[in-house]
Amino acid sequence: MMTVDLAAQSVRDLNKALHECKDNLTEKEWVVTNPKGNHNIAVGLDADISVDIHGHAGYFCAGMNKTANITVHGNAGQGVAENMMSGVVRIKGDASQAAGATAHGGLLVIEGNAGARCGISMKGVDIVVKGSIGHMSCFMGQSGSLVVCGDAGEALGDSLYEVHIYVKGTVKSLGADCIEKEMRSEHVAELKGLLEKAGVDENPLDFKRYGSARQLYTFKVDNASAY
């Protein structure tokens, strides 16, 4: 196990060492101490390693992650796991705005609450939030799944494409073209799998499903020639 103390080393030193794991994997388990809200911790990783960050992280933590398994034992600032491609990112505390923004793949688990715009423009990632999420979450979400065990804020799933949204609690309001949909057996199975993967003990039958009504401009075949 390798420990990097950010009180003694810079984030740049840490990220450089983590990036080198791609071609020269000498250490699989990394521990980061004293993150102290620094931005860009463990960004751009591309190796089968685990990184445990002990404390609160700043903006863009675990951004662009590929393959790596990153855990923040604390809160994360804006844009955690933004544009993640694969791997697992787990936040033990709360996440700020735009968690998992534009992420293409992998699993993002937030054990506390997430702020506004959670999963904005998500493109294939699975996001599981044990708490609640803020307003404008999943705006223009394209694919993947968003699971919320608490409540969702205003304008959930506005201008949604094909993301599957599951919410256990209340939804303050649905965004344009987002509607509640029937929870069929394949959705229960999908949700059960997501909850198990995230290690969250909830009954899939307690959730409601939301998705796109596919009525906006982009869904009309008559407009296809405009692109």
């Binding site: 102290k36 809200g37 620094n38 931005h39 404390g55 609160h56 700043g58 903006y59 809160n75 600032g77 505390g93 709360d94 700020s96 705005q97 702020g115 506004a116 803020g134 307003h135």
Partner: peptide
Amino acid sequence: SEYQALVTLPGIENAKVWEPEP
């Protein structure tokens, strides 16, 4: 504005830290 401004405060490691609602 950012958490990093709070890290030198005594007992911040065990403080309740949260983002205010809009």
